[in-house]
């Protein structure tokens, strides 16, 4: 068996309301250090994690959204966004703070099928 596995992190929750998005991102960064095949999927409210212009000063919480832009430096380049979830929120790629690959739901589902490890928090 190959030592490189396909890891997908499925993000379906909005940032700040709960800690899941932030702590998920912490796992992603660690996984990068293990030289695995890492991809991130954003569905449902998880898409809001990537929204441009987050200003968290007023809620006295750290704005962790710039970290998504830093993923590139960890060789994590596969960020997938489900088209239907994006449209359902009235957002387009231009509203997101990082380059993503937009996939229709069926293609997103096929991509999930191909993974060895799917983590969602």
């Amino acid at each position: 068996m190959s030592d490189i596995k396909k890891f997908m992190f499925v993000n379906r929750k909005a940032p700040y309301g709960t800690i899941y998005a932030l702590e998920s991102l912490e796992v992603v960064l660690i996984t990068a250090a293990f030289d695995q095949d890492v991809s991130l999927a954003f569905l449902d409210d998880g898409i809001y994690q990537l929204r441009k212009g987050q200003q968290t000063k007023g809620i006295e919480t750290k704005n962790f959204s710039p970290t998504y832009r830093a993923l590139d430096g960890y060789d994590i380049e596969k960020l997938y966004v489900e088209k239907e979830s994006l449209e359902a929120r009235g957002l387009s790629e231009d509203d997101l703070l990082v380059d993503v690959i937009v996939l229709p739901r069926a293609e997103m589902g096929e991509l999930m099928d191909q993974q060895d490890v799917v983590l969602s928090f």
Binding site: D3, K5, F7, E26, V27, I30, T31, A33, F34, Q36, D116, V117, L119, S120, F121
Partner: peptide, 18 residues
């Protein structure tokens, strides 16, 4: 957290409860 990633690599299946 490396222990979680290692579990993903070493185990045949990783099951999440949350």
């Amino acid at each position: 957290l490396g222990q979680l990633v290692e579990a993903g690599i070493q185990a045949d299946r990783l099951v999440t409860f949350g």
